[in-house]
Structures are given as C-alpha cells and as structure tokens.
Amino acid sequence: MKKIVKMIFCISFVFYLFALLIVLFLGSRGASWSDLTMLEYIRYSSNIVPFKTINIYLKAMVDGSMNIDIPVKNLVGNVMLFLPMGIYLPIFFRKTNKAGIFFLSMMTMLLIVEAIQLFTRRGSFDIDDFILNILGALIGFGIMKTTYFQKLCIANPKLKVFGKY
C-alpha cells in the first residue's frame, strides 16, 4: 500500500508540473507584441501596483461591467494554479516543510516564473498574479499541514508513505 500511494503522489506531481508548464509557458497569449522593443514590452505588459488587477476584477464582478467568467477565471484560476504546489513541495522537498522556508521558496519560484514569462514574452509580470499564486500555495500548504491530511496521506501509521512530519 505504501508504494502505491507514494507512486500515485509521484505520478500526479509529474502530471501537475507538466500541466503547469503548459499553462504558464506554452498556452496562447493573444497579441505577440513582437514589434515592441523589450523595454517597451516590459513597460506595457507589466503591473507592479499591488491589487490593481484584483480590484478591477472585483469591481467588474460587482457592477457587471465584465463577463463574470473573465474575473472568476483569473482570480480563482491564479489561486488554484499553485494550490497543489503547497501540498507537493513540502512532501517532496522536506526543507520546505517549515512555513518560512516554504514561503521564501514559493516567492523565489514565482518571481522566476513571472520573469521568464516576461522575458520570453509568454506573458507579463503581474504582481497580482504573484499575490494570488502565493495565496493558492499557502492555502495548499495549510491543507497539507492539517491533522486530517496528515492522518489521511502522510502520518497514517499503517502507510508511513513519506515518513514522519
């Protein structure tokens, strides 16, 4: 049983990473902006004002000025995108089992992802995406730390899949 559960976690982590790669770097991004210099692209496609996009989407949801699918997909999607990372990262990388190290690891990872998206023109640098992704990862980390999850998947004395936490 232990090997089966561990194998399921490993396989699902690989599929998650593959899906993350597709969503973050290979998906369709609309206009290519190829006629702009890199500095112009950075200036026009970056948002460094915290909660700017989040507020726009929340206001649009309240006043109905935008199709509800757009803000919901953006807000909920960005949170859900990294929620599994909050579960997987501490399981596979024990040092990230502590909240502070996990938080710093996620911040570093997400800043790298945002920078790669920006410099490859596969997206933009949006501090609000960063905030929502961090929030999702922290929710996942919180789920992973619950007694219920620990008993169910990790610390079950009969399974001992990933050792003692």
Rank of each mutant, 00 (worst) to 15 (best):
A99L: 12
W33C: 08
N47E: 04
T147S: 07
I4G: 04
P50T: 06
I48G: 12
M109V: 09
P71S: 08
K160W: 06
F92E: 05
F51D: 01
R29L: 04
I54L: 02
F149Q: 00
S65N: 10
L118Y: 02
C10Q: 11
F149S: 01
F119C: 04
N74K: 12
C153M: 12
I56C: 05
K95H: 07
L81V: 14
M107A: 12
L36D: 05
S105R: 12
A60F: 13
R29E: 03
F13S: 15
P84E: 10
A115V: 12
L36K: 11
L20F: 09
F130S: 08
M109Y: 13
R29S: 14
I139K: 00
M38H: 10
S12W: 10
V79W: 04
F119G: 03
S124T: 15
D126R: 02
I70S: 06
E114H: 04
D128S: 03
N74A: 13
R122S: 13
I11L: 14
K3R: 12
A155E: 14
M7H: 12
I143S: 00
A137D: 01
T146L: 02
M66N: 08
I112H: 02
R29D: 02
F51V: 09
L81N: 07
D126K: 01
L20N: 13
Q117C: 11
C10S: 14
I70L: 10
I87F: 06
G136Y: 00
K2S: 11
W33A: 12
T146A: 02
R121Y: 10
I112R: 02
V49S: 14
A155P: 00
A137S: 15
S46E: 04
L24F: 05
C153T: 02
D35K: 06
I91S: 15
R29W: 13
N55R: 08
I70N: 08
K160Q: 06
S12T: 10
L110E: 09
S46W: 04
K59L: 14
L36P: 03
K3F: 06
D35L: 15
Y165E: 09
I8M: 06
K98S: 14
R94C: 10
I116L: 14
N55D: 03
L58N: 12
N78A: 04
I54H: 00
D129T: 11
L24R: 04
D128N: 02
S28R: 05
I87P: 01
L24N: 07
K52C: 07
L110D: 09
R94F: 07
I4L: 15
L58E: 07
P50I: 09
N133D: 05
K160A: 11
Y44C: 11
N78W: 02
L36F: 15
Y148A: 13
L26A: 08
K151W: 05
M38A: 13
L17M: 15
